[in-house]
Design a protein around this nucleic acid. Structure first.
Lengths: 158, 158
DNA sequence: TATTGTTATACTCTATAACTATA
DNA sequence: TATAGTTATAGAGTATAACAATA
C-alpha cells in the first residue's frame, strides 16, 4: 500500500531520549510547546476556509465592533499599522470586509463585515469552538477556566 | 522635554471599549495573548545577547545532549531540516556551536557547544530564569506549577 | 531505496521609514 | 505639528522540492 503523501510531520512535545534540562521548568517554554501543537490543529481545522488565527481574531473584532478603524484594530492585534493594511487587504480580497468612509475624519476608514463575511465568520466560529474544545478535551471545565485565568495573569507587569 | 525615541509600542491585552466577543473564552486566544506579552519581555531581556527563544532552546538542547544530530534537533524544535541548517549556521557564526564528524555515519554531524557557547549559555540561562520568574511574578509557586501542568495537557490527542 | 544534510526558492509575518492627505 | 493610512523595503522564520553523499 503506497503512501500517497508524506506522513504529516507532527510536532513531538518530548523527543524520547532527549534531556530538555532547564526548559522543562519554564512557563515560557511550556507555552511555546503548547502553542506549536495547537497551531497545527487550528491550521488543519480552519485552513480550508482560508482563515488564520490572526484573520479570525480580526473578523471577530470587526464583527463585534463595527466601524472600528485600522489603527484600533492594529492595537487589538498587537501589530504595526503597516501590517494592518495587509491583513485588511486580504480580508477585502476574500470579500469578507469593506471599508466605509468616516463622516467627520477623511483620513480614517470604518471597517465592517460584508454579508459574506458574516456567513464565513459563523462557520469559522463554529470550527474554532470545536477546535478549542478539542485541544482542551483533557481538561475539566473548571481546569479550562482556571487555565485561561492563569494565562491572563502572566506578564512582567506588577 | 523631547522624547528621544518613540514610545516603545507595547501590546495591550485589552483595548478599552473593544468587545472581544468569543475570543475571551478561548484557550487558544488566551495563549496567544499571553505569548505576545511574554515575547516582548524575552526580547528585551535576551536581545542584547543575540539570543532568540529558538536559539536558547537549541543551545540548551545541544548542551544537554552533546553530539545530537541536526535531524534530531529539528524534531525537538519542531522545524524542518532546512530550517535547522540556518539555526545551526547562525550559532556557528556566533562561535557558540561546532559540528564534529560522526565516526560511523559520514552523513551526519555531531553538534556540540564551544567553550564560548557554554559561557554564553550560562549568562543566557540566568537571564531566561529571571525573565520567566518575572512573567510569572503574579502567580504563587503552586499556581505556576499548575499552569505548566495544564499547558502540558493541552492538545488534540486523546 | 532510504536517510542526512544542503541549496534554491518562495511565502508569511512583522517592522521601520518615508510618504500623502488630512486634522 | 500630529495623526491615519499607504508604500517600499527588509529581516525573520518557515516550508517544499530537488540534489549530493552516504547508508
Amino acid at each position: 500500500m503506497a503512501r500517497i503523501s508524506p506522513a504529516p510531520q507532527r510536532f513531538e512535545r518530548r523527543v524520547p531520549g532527549i534531556d530538555y534540562a532547564v526548559l522543562d521548568g519554564l512557563v515560557g517554554y511550556a507555552l511555546r510547546r503548547a502553542q506549536i501543537a495547537i497551531y497545527e490543529d487550528f491550521e488543519s481545522a480552519l485552513g480550508p476556509l482560508a482563515v488564520t488565527p490572526q484573520r479570525f481574531s480580526a473578523l471577530v473584532v470587526i464583527a463585534g465592533n463595527p466601524g472600528i478603524t485600522q489603527g484600533t484594530l492594529g492595537r487589538v492585534l498587537g501589530i504595526a499599522r503597516s501590517g494592518v493594511v495587509l491583513v485588511v487587504h486580504g480580508l477585502q480580497e476574500q470579500g469578507w470586509v469593506t471599508r466605509e468612509a468616516h463622516g467627520q475624519d477623511a483620513r480614517t476608514w470604518l471597517l465592517k463585515l460584508t454579508p459574506e463575511g458574516s456567513v464565513l465568520l459563523t462557520a469559522a466560529r463554529r470550527r474554532v469552538r470545536a477546535h478549542d474544545a478539542r485541544i482542551g478535551r483533557r481538561l475539566s471545565p473548571a481546569e479550562r477556566a482556571q487555565l485561561i485565568a492563569l494565562l491572563d495573569r502572566l506578564g512582567p507587569d506588577a
